[in-house]
Amino acid sequence: MSLKLEKIAAEREKARRKRDEWEERRKEWDRKYHEQENSEICEMVHAQSLTPEQLAVIIQMAQAAVPNPENLKLDEKETEDME
């Protein structure tokens, strides 16, 4: 192998190791973020002294109150009828 190819191969391997290192860091930060998010949600629920059943009802009510974007789309015939 030529000296030039060896240098390129070494740099490529170095870049792969750094990529793997950064990917592991990203996974760790994702895990920490998710863990903190869950902790804050639990704190909010406990602060309101909600039971799991009450929380389920609140979530159902919130889902019912927020329109589904798919339901808001009008098909071509409805659009033509409105014109």
Rank of each mutant, 00 (worst) to 15 (best):
residue 48 Q to N: 08
residue 23 E to R: 15
residue 42 C to G: 04
residue 47 A to W: 07
residue 73 K to P: 03
residue 80 E to K: 00
residue 53 E to R: 09
residue 59 I to R: 13
residue 33 Y to R: 02
residue 20 D to V: 09
residue 24 E to P: 03
residue 48 Q to D: 01
residue 58 I to L: 00
residue 50 L to D: 00
residue 31 R to V: 01
residue 42 C to N: 08
residue 13 E to P: 01
residue 33 Y to I: 00
residue 77 K to R: 14
residue 40 E to S: 07
residue 71 N to L: 06
residue 23 E to W: 08
residue 83 E to T: 13
residue 79 T to Q: 03
residue 64 A to M: 08
residue 6 E to V: 01
residue 29 W to H: 10
residue 63 Q to H: 14
residue 37 E to P: 01
residue 44 M to P: 08
residue 34 H to R: 15
residue 16 R to Q: 15
residue 6 E to Q: 14
residue 13 E to H: 02
residue 6 E to H: 08
residue 70 E to K: 00
residue 35 E to C: 09
residue 41 I to V: 05
residue 66 V to M: 09
residue 82 M to S: 10
residue 53 E to Q: 03
residue 1 M to G: 15
residue 35 E to S: 06
residue 3 L to S: 12
residue 26 R to T: 06
residue 49 S to A: 12
residue 74 L to E: 05
residue 42 C to L: 09
residue 56 A to C: 10
residue 14 K to E: 15
residue 79 T to I: 15
residue 49 S to V: 05
residue 11 E to K: 13
residue 46 H to I: 04
residue 58 I to G: 00
residue 42 C to M: 10
residue 78 E to I: 00
residue 81 D to F: 05
residue 42 C to T: 12
residue 25 R to N: 04
residue 43 E to H: 01
residue 76 E to R: 00
residue 25 R to D: 05
residue 30 D to P: 02
residue 50 L to N: 01
residue 83 E to H: 12
residue 32 K to S: 03
residue 46 H to N: 14
residue 67 P to Q: 05
residue 75 D to G: 05
